[in-house]
Design a protein around this nucleic acid. Sequence first.
DNA 1: CACAATACGGAAGTAAGGTTCCGTTTGTCA
DNA 2: TGACAAACGGAACCTTACTTCCGTATTGTG
Lengths: 193, 193
Amino acid sequence: MNNIAVTQKPERADKTRNRARILEAASAAFAEFGVEAQMDDVAARAGLGVGTLYRHFATKEALVGAMIRERFALILDLARAGLEREGEPFAVVKDVLRGGAGVCADDVAAQDALMAAGDEAWRRAGDILEELQATMQVLIDRAQAAGTMRLDFDSADVSMIMCGVSATMSVDGWDWQRHLEILLDGLAAPGAR
Amino acid sequence: MNNIAVTQKPERADKTRNRARILEAASAAFAEFGVEAQMDDVAARAGLGVGTLYRHFATKEALVGAMIRERFALILDLARAGLEREGEPFAVVKDVLRGGAGVCADDVAAQDALMAAGDEAWRRAGDILEELQATMQVLIDRAQAAGTMRLDFDSADVSMIMCGVSATMSVDGWDWQRHLEILLDGLAAPGAR
DNA sequence: CACAATACGGAAGTAAGGTTCCGTTTGTCA
DNA sequence: TGACAAACGGAACCTTACTTCCGTATTGTG
C-alpha cells in the first residue's frame, strides 16, 4: 500500500508499544462487555487517552477488525499444523475444528463482539479468512477421499457451522462442546459412525 | 394479573386494531433492519404516532418480547401437533425441528433482531418457552426410547442447536438447511444412520 | 347529541457513546 | 542538549434513537 517509500523512519517506540497495549485492553474490554464495550473504556484499560486510541484505530470497527485478524491468524496456524499431521484425515478435520472452537471459546464474550461486528470489520480480515478456507478445503478433500467424511460439505460450510457453534458459546448453561460433537458426528460419512 | 376485576369495560376498538397494526409493522421493520429497526419507523409503518406505539409497548424491549412470544407460539403449535403424530418418533422430532427452523427462516432478519434481544425480552416469553421445552422433551423421550436418537441430548439442548442454526440464517450464501440436516444426522443414535 | 373516558400525535427532551480537535508531552537525531 | 516531528490526553462535540409529555381527536354511553 504505502510501502512505496521504503526508506521511511522507523516507528517511534511508544507507538509500537501502545498499539499492543490497545489490542490487549480491547480483548479484555470486549471479553467483559461484548460489542457494547466502550472506546473510552478500552483507552482507560490501556492507560491511554481516547485520542491515542483513535490515532491507532480510526474507528471502533477498525479496532474490532484488527481483533478478528488476530483471532483468525491463530486458527489458521492450527489448520496449517493439521496439514502436516499423519493419521485418519477426518479425525484431523475434527481436531482442527475442535481447536478452532477452542480458540473462540477462550474468550467467549469477545467472540460475542465479533459476531455482532459489521461487514466492514470482517472485510479487513478477508485475506486471512480466505487462506484459512483454502487450508480447510485441503483437509476436507483428504477426508472425503478417504471415504470417512460426508461429501456434501466444503470449506465454505466450515464458517457456517463454526459460526453456529460460536453463537451458542455465550449462553450460560449451554454446552457448546456437545453442540460441536453433534455436528462432527453429522459430518461423518453416512454409515461410518 | 389484572383480571381480578372481571367486569371491566371492553377494550376500545381502535386500540385493538392498532395493537395488531403495530405488531405487523414491527415484523416488517425488523425484517428490513434487524435490531437496528427504529421505533419511529415502526410507528410510521403502522400509520401511528410514536406516542401510541409507546402506550401499547412501554419500551422497545417489550415490543421485541411480544414478537418473540408470537413466534414461539407458532413453534409450540408445531410441537404439539407432533405429539399427535404416528410414525417413527425420531422422524417426528426431526420434522418438528425442521418446522421450527422454517418458522424462524420465514423472517430471517426479524430472527436477527430476536437473537440480539436482551434477557428482558426473552423473560417476557418465558412461559411459552417453558411449555415448548416440555413438549419437546416428550417427543425426545419417545425417540430415545425407540433407540433411534442419541441419548445425550435433551430439550434444553434443542434451544442451543436451534439458536446455532438461526444464527446462520442471515448470512447470504450460507445454506442453513444443510446446517440443520448435518445436526439432525448427528442426533441419530450411533450406528443408526 | 353531549359528555366523559380513553386513545392518539408528534415535537421536544434526554442519554449514551463514538469521534474530533488542539494544546501538551515525549521520542529521536544531530 | 536543543529542536522538531510524532504522539498523546481528554474535554467537548455531535449524532442517533429511545422515551416523555400534553394538547387534540376518537370512541362509546345515557
